[in-house]
Amino acid sequence: MAAGGDHGSPDSYRSPLASRYASPEMCFVFSDRYKFRTWRQLWLWLAEAEQTLGLPITDEQIQEMKSNLENIDFKMAAEEEKRLRHDVMAHVHTFGHCCPKAAGIIHLGATSCYVGDNTDLIILRNALDLLLPKLARVISRLADFAKERASLPTLGFTHFQPAQLTTVGKRCCLWIQDLCMDLQNLKRVRDDLRFRGVKGTTGTQASFLQLFEGDDHKVEQLDKMVTEKAGFKRAFIITGQTYTRKVDIEVLSVLASLGASVHKICTDIRLLANLKEMEEPFEKQQIGSSAMPYKRNPMRSERCCSLARHLMTLVMDPLQTASVQWFERTLDDSANRRICLAEAFLTADTILNTLQNISEGLVVYPKVIERRIRQELPFMATENIIMAMVKAGGSRQDCHEKIRVLSQQAASVVKQEGGDNDLIERIQVDAYFSPIHSQLDHLLDPSSFTGRASQQVQRFLEEEVYPLLKPYESVMKVKAELCL
């Protein structure tokens, strides 16, 4: 049975990233139509530049190519590739079939990587351009969430054990800070992308030097003109047959890092959902379990974690691919890159769409948070109580021993009897502590235990987050809708 299948058929496997999760716009960027249309555009740009620099290419040939950029006979191309065992030459023939007058000058002087690699770089750039505003929107939604809850005390956790208090907004800023680093890295790697350009079979530009009869300047002009037509500021000066596969490492490393950030955020949300302090959106008709109707599973956060793990592992592909590119190139890269580049971007696209949807509907339960604080705060307040007693004339050592005994009794009630923490009640009825009984409410005010959390939130948002989001103001209103 021949390899390949009808990918629109229910009898043929289709990647869930495309069929179930990723956005239509990201799927289109990695589609065959987008790819092969870009090949034709690159052939047109090459012909236009070659004509401008004096090669015998007519206006009629150029116009014929322009008129057929979208006229792609995919069936013919597939048949040609089956016959020739070469995808680029299959599309040269297919393009030439609908451009008979231009057929002889299509791909003039070029090698397969002229269309293959340059198209990949265009796709990487455009895919990054799709991700950047999506990530900015996630940051914006979380920034709104953090600002609104900047002063809401909550129990902090280290080692997932109760620690000092923080605020809900401050905790959210930990998430935002990681995503801001990801946004900066995505922008950097996007701006650092260079075009492969017009380089020939081993990167020496020998074929173009021959076409222009040894004119170095025209060869350099050709490279520059096509690079500018493709919208790049610069091209690699040095290439082998391909652009260095280190570029793929750079791009997928940034995406993998984004995956790590999203995994951490969504894990926190899942843990908070278990504590009943916070939940992701839950639709009115949504079913959490087929057997347990009360369940409210954090399905979206779980999906993000599941896909983020996949995204983090994909960076190993370009690392290994770059390491086995012998001399000017081997074909070890080809099949692998067809999979890992598309999957990385479709996965990143999915987790950003999902995280935006989550961040637009996060639900906080202040009463649950308050109750958990009441359970733990008495123990945390013991040092403040000791200091207040010393100020009232008591002995630190005597007070410490009193607190120690009462704390152990209260802990026994919590752990052995399943009761509430009654340390404060014990202190309130103990005559030894009568000098500070009137101060206990103040000493137990949760806001006095959150330090500068709310001020940190305000400063972080104003100095770091809002300036970073400013270039994306025009796209901030787009909502994230999930079908599944």
Rank of each mutant, 00 (worst) to 15 (best):
E228K: 14
L272Y: 06
M312A: 06
E383C: 05
C340S: 11
L406V: 10
L352I: 13
G418Y: 02
E81H: 04
L423Q: 05
Q409I: 05
L128P: 02
P318I: 01
P16Q: 15
W175T: 02
V247I: 10
F345L: 12
A146V: 06
T350L: 13
I385N: 04
P16G: 11
L135G: 07
L311G: 02
L46K: 01
T354P: 07
T354M: 14
F195M: 14
D73W: 08
S434Y: 11
L461N: 01
T321D: 00
I123C: 09
G5D: 12
L377Q: 00
C483R: 14
G394A: 09
Y472E: 15
C98N: 11
D317E: 05
K82F: 09
L443G: 03
C113P: 04
T244L: 00
L46W: 00
I123D: 02
M312T: 11
K477D: 07
M380V: 02
L179N: 02
H442V: 14
K134Q: 15
W45P: 02
M476Y: 15
F212P: 04
V92D: 04
L319Y: 09
R20E: 00
G5M: 13
F195N: 03
L69N: 06
A103Q: 13
Y294L: 02
R245C: 00
A90L: 00
W326T: 05
D59G: 08
F236Q: 08
K66E: 08
T111I: 01
F379W: 06
N274S: 12
H400R: 02
F433M: 08
E425R: 13
P16T: 14
Q210E: 15
G393I: 05
L423E: 05
W45E: 08
C483G: 15
I358G: 05
M312W: 05
H91W: 06
L468Q: 15
S67C: 12
H159S: 03
R372T: 05
C304G: 13
C266M: 14
I123H: 11
K470C: 14
A388Q: 05
G96Y: 05
D178E: 11
E383T: 03
P56R: 13
S112Y: 01
S261H: 00
S31L: 02
M26R: 02
C113R: 00
G214D: 11
A308N: 05
E425M: 08
L53C: 15
I351M: 14
Q51H: 07
P446S: 06
E50H: 08
R270A: 01
N384M: 13
I122F: 10
Q320E: 04
P24A: 11
K367Y: 06
L130Q: 07
G156S: 13
A344I: 04
R309N: 07
D430W: 07
C113W: 01
T111E: 00
D182K: 00
Q416K: 09
V189Y: 07
P293K: 01
M380G: 02
D332S: 00
K218V: 07
S474Y: 15
T227I: 04
V465C: 14
A453Q: 00
R40W: 01
V457P: 03
G8D: 15
V92A: 14
R33G: 10
V262S: 15
N384P: 12
G393W: 05
A150Q: 11
N118G: 10
L44R: 07
Y13E: 09
R374F: 06
C173S: 13
Q439D: 15
V429N: 13
E425N: 12
V251T: 12
E328W: 01
F345K: 02
L84Y: 09
S447I: 13
L311A: 05
I339D: 03
A102P: 05
D117C: 10
S474P: 14
A392C: 11
R125N: 10
R141P: 15
E464K: 03
H7F: 10
R141D: 06
T111A: 00
R194M: 07
C266P: 05
V324A: 14
R194A: 14
P298C: 11
L132C: 14
Q325N: 14
R188T: 10
M225W: 06
K367N: 14
D332V: 01
L314P: 03
L272S: 13
R149G: 08
N357T: 13
V364F: 05
S261R: 02
D248K: 04
Q177N: 15
L406P: 03
L443V: 09
T166S: 12
F30D: 03
L362Y: 06
S447E: 12
Q439A: 15
F74D: 15
D332W: 02
Y34L: 06
S359C: 08
V364M: 07
V315I: 11
A411K: 10
L155R: 01
D178K: 05
L311E: 01
Q409D: 10
N353A: 10
A410M: 06
R37Q: 15
L271K: 03
W45F: 13
D120R: 06
D223K: 01
D441Y: 13
Q416F: 13
E50D: 04
F236G: 02
S140W: 13
Y294M: 03
L135A: 08
S253T: 12
L209A: 14
L444F: 14
L42I: 11
L468A: 15
Q428P: 03
K147F: 09
L319Q: 03
T204F: 00
A480V: 15
I269E: 00
G361Q: 09
